[in-house]
Simulated scan of single mutants.
Amino acid sequence: MKNSIFSFILISFVWIGLVSCSSFTTNSYKAKGADLDQYQTYAWVNLKHFVSEDQENEKRYARFILEHADAEIRARGFQLDTINPQVVFQFDTKIEHKISYNRTPTVSMGIGFGGPGYYVGGAVPVSGGQMVTKEYDEGILTIEMLETQTGRLLWRGWAQEKLGFETDLEADLQKAIPQIFMRLPVKKKK
């Protein structure tokens, strides 16, 4: 009995730890009625991020993103065709400054008094209910798939994450890119 309770507690902590390590969220959008399985060839567009490899701005991970995203696309069976592709992929990164608003509890705690032999207690409301603002930066990676002939957006996947001093962008991108492409609804081609 003790072992099963200990095992349950240990598994719970491991699961909570794994879930909390995932600091980003991923989402996707697919155009209504689009059959993504019909497309076989692709190319990349909007590669202006690579003009200067030593740029020190928010596009500094562009080559890293391209290499990892390209590997995910090829793993799904797409063939690179820079002459006449059926679809094109593009990506973009941005950092948005955001503000979150929270309200503190209206009643925080009570006050109590005690002495030897006699204990007196009571609850007195302590002020609360103030608005608290918190500023933070959020990084967003967006990958889009467009039909070459029409320019129609077929699919968009993105990951977003609150950024801080402890954020390891390279490690998070390495985890986020496969999770974005897990949302690309295509069957692996042979």
Score class of each variant (00 low, 15 high):
Gly128Leu: 14
Phe50Ile: 02
Phe50Gln: 05
Ser7Tyr: 04
Trp155Val: 02
Phe8Trp: 06
Ile99Gln: 15
Ile73Gly: 03
Asp70Gln: 06
Ser20Cys: 00
Thr106Glu: 11
Ala34Tyr: 10
Asp137Ile: 09
Gln79Met: 08
Ala71Gly: 08
Thr25Phe: 11
Glu161Gly: 08
Tyr42Val: 04
Gln38Thr: 12
Ser12Thr: 14
Arg183Asp: 07
Asn46Trp: 08
Val88Asp: 01
Met131Glu: 09
Ile99Lys: 15
Ser52Ile: 14
His68Ile: 03
Pro178Gln: 06
His68Gln: 09
Glu67His: 05
Asp81Ser: 05
Ser108Val: 15
Ser4Tyr: 04
Ile180Trp: 05
Tyr136Lys: 10
Thr142Ala: 14
Asp54Arg: 11
Asp172Pro: 00
Lys30His: 11
Met131Trp: 07
Leu141His: 02
Glu135Gln: 14
Lys2Trp: 03
Thr150Gly: 05
Ala31Lys: 12
Phe78Cys: 00
Leu169Tyr: 04
Tyr101Ser: 11
Thr41Trp: 11
Ala75Glu: 01
Ile9Arg: 04
Leu10Glu: 02
Ala62His: 06
Val120His: 02
Ile180Ala: 02
Ile5Val: 06
Thr41Ser: 15
Glu147Val: 02
Asn57Pro: 06
Trp15Gln: 04
Ser52His: 10
Ala176Gly: 13
Ser52Asp: 15
Leu18Pro: 00
Val132Tyr: 06
Lys190Thr: 01
